[in-house]
Design a protein around this nucleic acid. Structure first.
Ligand SMILES: NC(=O)c1ccc[n+]([C@@H]2O[C@H](COP(=O)([O-])OP(=O)(O)OC[C@H]3O[C@@H](n4cnc5c(N)ncnc54)[C@H](O)[C@@H]3O)[C@@H](O)[C@H]2O)c1
Ligand SMILES: NC(=O)c1ccc[n+]([C@@H]2O[C@H](COP(=O)([O-])OP(=O)(O)OC[C@H]3O[C@@H](n4cnc5c(N)ncnc54)[C@H](O)[C@@H]3O)[C@@H](O)[C@H]2O)c1
Lengths: 215, 215
DNA sequence: AATAAGTCGTGATATTTTTCACATATTCAC
DNA sequence: GTGAATATGTGAAAAATATCACGACTTATT
């Protein structure tokens, strides 16, 4: 699809740029330089210019970038005009937090339904999202292609298999399990315990005198 | 401190290895190869061997790695024997989920106290962790060096400043705000909305026929 | 109109990370 | 013991990412 020449590292930063540009526009700013952007999002200004340059010459020398133009460009690039439906599996501590938080501020994704194995949770609605019993997964999932996994790790493999066979193509996996999927399914692991441990490890073992911010 | 020759990419994977080795030991396995590890944690086996090699020759050719030895080694390396205290700021949706989840399974970090601006939350205890009013931050924080930030983005800068002046050295920031800190403070951003958007972007724009798993 | 200040886009370079591929060592089966 | 199988550790190469530094162009100022 189109140019898949865009480096992954760049692609991961696009939503960040987009969000900040939105803020700028709301503040009524009409122009912005890579230097200003850099200070706000904490990414080197050369990296920002390089990132933008993959999409062509979006700025003007000596001027910077026009906020509205850039925003419009990224809106298209990030498909901000089409809403992507997401399913959430596991309405426990984390899952409930995600349901209550509305990802649809500034955002093109929306959790449209949730599943849980607990019969007490099925039938309810949390944050405006209906919760179904996991037994009804195949029946209710419909054409949703993205799932958030917030179930116990022990359930991850079994549920993943069911999700994949129903056509899910992207999984945001919060369980510590490293799930196996076919090659055409993308899994993004967010392992909170590990993030915390890694932070502590860095604190103890790395001097850190220079500014190095870690994602 | 010791060898800070260990690449950051490697350091981030250490807790993952550690957790899996723990599982292996609990299953009674005594040896493991980089190939087996690779399948379990979804990291290329050459990368695993390279990672381990930064710490010396931990394995044996033709045999693999001794689980107990490796685990003991990483336990020391990751300071699993000392518990690091953590403060949580913002007992809302996310914060409450973290308090209820006990990070101290297999883990060397523990949330020991929490703060919130809501007077109804202060004074309570959630998941065994006392919640104080944010006004008492300076008084109660003590010698804690790591904080988890789960407050509204608008509060992030102000609270960060207070944390830093009280001596916090590591922040796990869940707010969308990109906070500014002195060079000796490490910030790790976990931006859930962006993770979700990035996943959707990859799904739509990247072919993905080969196995590429993204962290 | 000329000058100064600001800023992009990018070739070149540096750094970081991953992967290949193989000499070398060990184990295991018989 | 011997040979086949297994698996490490690592030099070298590749790939990915980040940064430097500067020519080219814009805007603002006097
Ligand atoms: N909460 C945290 O702070 C935190 C931190 C790090 C990792 N995690 C991980 O995130 C995951 C969820 O954590 P949590 O604290 O929300 O757990 P939780 O126990 O509160 O919630 C899990 C939910 O999944 C449901 N469930 C169980 N089996 C199911 C199945 N087969 N199908 C559908 N639903 C099922 C349960 O009924 C429960 O509601 C876990 O894997 C956990 O390790 C959580
Ligand atoms: N919940 C999610 O799923 C989710 C997803 C992505 C990002 N986030 C981000 O995480 C952060 C927290 O999200 P949430 O859903 O838990 O929000 P929330 O509103 O449920 O919780 C925020 C809590 O912080 C407290 N608070 C406000 N100001 C404070 C202050 N100055 N000092 C101390 N406490 C204060 C509030 O009383 C509240 O309890 C937000 O920045 C949000 O953007 C949350």
């Amino acid at each position: 699809m189109e140019q898949n020449k865009i480096p992954q590292a760049t692609a991961k930063r696009l939503p960040l740029y987009y969000r900040f540009l939105n803020n700028l526009q709301m503040q009524g700013k009409t122009r912005v330089s890579s230097k200003e952007l850099s200070e706000a999002v904490k990414v080197d200004s050369a990296t920002i210019r390089r990132d933008f340059s993959y999409f062509g010459a979006l700025g003007k020398k000596g001027y910077g970038y026009n906020v509205e133009y850039l925003l419009g460009f990224f809106r298209k690039t990030l498909d901000q005009d089409e809403l992507t439906d997401v399913a959430l599996i596991g309405v426990g501590n984390l899952g409930t937090a995600f349901l209550n938080y509305n990802f649809t501020k500034n955002n093109n994704t929306k959790i449209v339904l949730a599943f849980d194995a607990d019969p007490n949770k099925a039938g309810k609605e949390i944050g405006g999202v209906p919760v179904y019993h996991i037994d009804d997964l195949e029946e209710k999932l419909g054409n949703v292609k993205v799932a958030i996994l917030t179930i116990p790790a022990t359930e991850a493999d079994r549920i993943t298999e069911r999700l994949v066979s129903k056509g899910i193509k992207g999984i945001l996996n919060f369980t510590p399990a490293r799930i196996s999927v076919p090659d055409d399914v993308r899994v993004h692991h967010i392992d909170l315990a590990i993030e915390l441990q890694a932070l502590v490890y860095f604190l103890k073992h790395y001097p850190l005198d220079t500014k190095e911010e870690v994602l």
